[in-house]
């Protein structure tokens, strides 16, 4: 029982990280048809700058972490918006080229981060509570999992509210379904492109700071690793579906934890098998629109 609870909650925590990356990926793909390989770079730069800011002001405290998170969100959003406005927009409607430039950005960014911060992970300080555990139903759960889950839930709630309650949210939901018809109603859909990049970048930025809490370090490859799983999550959940991304994040992460524990560390493989199975049985994913 206690192992079960531990695996479940740890899986949820990891799923929270996946979701923070996958939510933006899914919205960006759904609305614009862009497969954004640079998303991992948004996360990494936010993690680094968040850590740099946090440790300068108050290292290893809640204030420091809050500042890291704030800086991470701002950096993620800013870098994402710059990417969209300066680069992606020039290739409007050319999806393959758009994916290609994001590949280039991600390669260049990781190399640059290595140049600045080195190739080895840099271990970070955290508020003491986050390094402790809490007992639930006999399982000793690391406290940082709760922080991750709470943050992801807040982000999910925030994005859902935004999508449901605002005009831009309405435009984005409609655009994911049929971009051309949105333009044909007299709406400049490109403005919402910048907006989804901002939202996705902000979520990834927060994800970067939280990832450094979860792993206990920042490194130039933080984003690349999470990105692959976020891609898998996005495809399983259905490209363009926020709910799908949320469900698939939890599903993938929990499955990964269980397989790692019960099937001799085969978590990654099981996830890949799951992806292949989903794509073959239901190519549009759990909640995706029909292709």
């Amino acid at each position: 029982m206690d192992t079960l609870v531990l695996l479940l909650i740890t899986g949820l925590g990891l799923g929270a990280l996946y979701f923070l990356v996958a939510s933006g990926l899914s919205l960006i793909y759904g609305l614009m048809g862009v497969l954004n390989f640079a998303h991992g770079a948004f996360l990494t730069i936010a993690a680094f700058l968040g850590w740099e800011a946090g440790r300068r002001i108050s290292d290893g405290t809640w204030t420091g972490l809050a500042i890291s998170a704030l800086v991470g969100i701002l950096v993620g959003a800013t870098v994402a918006v710059l990417t969209e406005v300066l680069i992606i927009r020039r290739l409007y409607e050319r999806h393959i080229e758009q994916a290609l430039v994001t590949v280039g950005i991600s390669l260049a960014a990781v190399a640059l981060f290595e140049g600045i911060w080195g190739t080895d992970p840099i271990y970070t300080d955290r508020p003491a509570w986050l390094t402790q555990t809490t007992e639930i139903l006999g399982a000793r759960i690391p406290n940082d999992r709760f922080l991750l889950i709470a943050c992801a839930a807040l982000v999910l709630g925030g994005i859902v509210l935004f999508l449901r309650r605002t005009r831009y949210g309405l435009i984005i939901r409609a655009g994911v379904e049929n971009r051309h018809m949105v333009t044909a109603l007299g709406i400049d859909v490109r403005r919402s492109f910048t907006l989804v990049f901002a939202i996705g970048g902000a979520a990834a930025g927060l994800g970067g700071v939280l990832a450094s809490v979860y792993y206990g370090y920042v490194s130039a490859h933080l984003g690349s690793v999470l990105l692959i799983f976020a891609f898998i999550v996005t495809v399983i959940g259905g490209l363009g579906s926020l709910t799908g991304a949320a469900i698939a994040s939890v599903l993938v992460a929990v499955l990964q934890q269980f397989a790692n524990f019960y099937l001799g560390g085969t978590g990654d493989l099981v996830v890949v098998v799951l992806l292949a199975a989903v794509l073959l049985i239901r190519p549009r994913g759990l909640m995706g629109k029909a292709a």
Partner: peptide, 17 residues
Amino acid sequence: EVFGSLTVAENLRLAER
């Protein structure tokens, strides 16, 4: 080409310019 996942009211609201 109505937006199937949106309500009727949302479809109309989106079109209002």
